[in-house]
């Protein structure tokens, strides 16, 4: 990229803002900070960030509110910082439009991976869909063709739909609801066990060791994520 990407960090804890600034700057981003929702609202039109890192546990205007506000007139990628056991907030944030989440405490590896994934999709929203290659897996979404080590893998239509959706958001987490809605339609948004069964089936077919998956990862209590190939992770 020519110009450095701008990241808006919204977090009320100074130490976190500090280390994020340092790390993101070292990674080549430009950082702008806001300590609460009000400040963020002010800064957004001015800074026009390429990505927002948002702490869900903000005082005052809650993080979720802010997400709704941002999504009202922007598709800027949002990665939320959440508390460890708070699956419900994570899911809600994702459903409201956040792109991904990182649980506190987190390591920079994880954060960087999420940022990269979120940014990648922002830039690839338009444009053609390439073949997804990771390890011995290759998925061609246009020709609806999946291979493992060159051998074709037969998938049922629903299985393929599921995989396609995962591929389109590769690297990002997708909630159960999002997947169900996409593949089965809004009416089946609550039937998580269908999803599980299908994921299981996909894993059986695609994973070298279905019990220890390396492609389709479980995000417990939230959803699933298709892991980016190693070279594309941060």
């Amino acid at each position: 990229m020519a110009r450095p990407l701008t990241v808006l960090v919204v977090d009320d804890e100074p130490p976190i803002r500090r280390f994020l600034r340092t790390s993101l700057t070292a990674a080549g981003y430009r950082v702008s900070e806001a300590e609460d929702g009000a400040a963020a609202t002010r800064l957004l039109p001015a800074e026009k960030p390429d990505l927002v890192i948002l702490d869900l546990g903000l005082p005052g205007k809650s993080g979720l509110e802010l997400i709704s506000e941002i999504r009202a007139n922007s598709t800027v990628p949002i990665v939320v910082l959440s508390a460890r056991h708070d699956e419900r907030s994570k899911v809600e944030a994702l459903d409201l439009g956040a792109d991904d989440y990182v649980s506190k405490p987190f390591g920079m590896d994880e954060l960087m991976a999420r940022l990269r994934a979120a940014l990648r999709h922002a830039f690839q929203a338009q444009g053609e869909l390439p073949v997804f290659v990771s390890g011995d897996l290759a998925v061609d979404l246009v020709r609806r063709h999946v291979t493992r080590s060159g051998h074709e893998v037969k998938l049922s239509p629903k299985e393929f739909d599921l995989l396609r959706h995962l591929v389109m958001h590769a690297g990002k987490v997708l909630t159960h609801r999002q997947l169900l809605r996409e593949v089965w339609g809004p009416a089946q948004a609550e039937e998580v066990q269908y999803l599980r069964v299908f994921i299981r089936g996909l894993r059986q077919k695609l994973e070298p060791d279905p019990t220890r998956p390396v492609h389709i990862l479980t995000e417990l209590g939230v959803g699933y994520r298709l892991q980016l190939p190693p070279e594309q992770r941060a």
Binding site: V192, R196, V197, I199, R200, P210, T211, P213, T218, L220
Partner: peptide, 11 residues
Amino acid sequence: ELIDVAEIVGS
């Protein structure tokens, strides 16, 4: 919710 044993072990 209904979960798959293999999945959760993997996780």
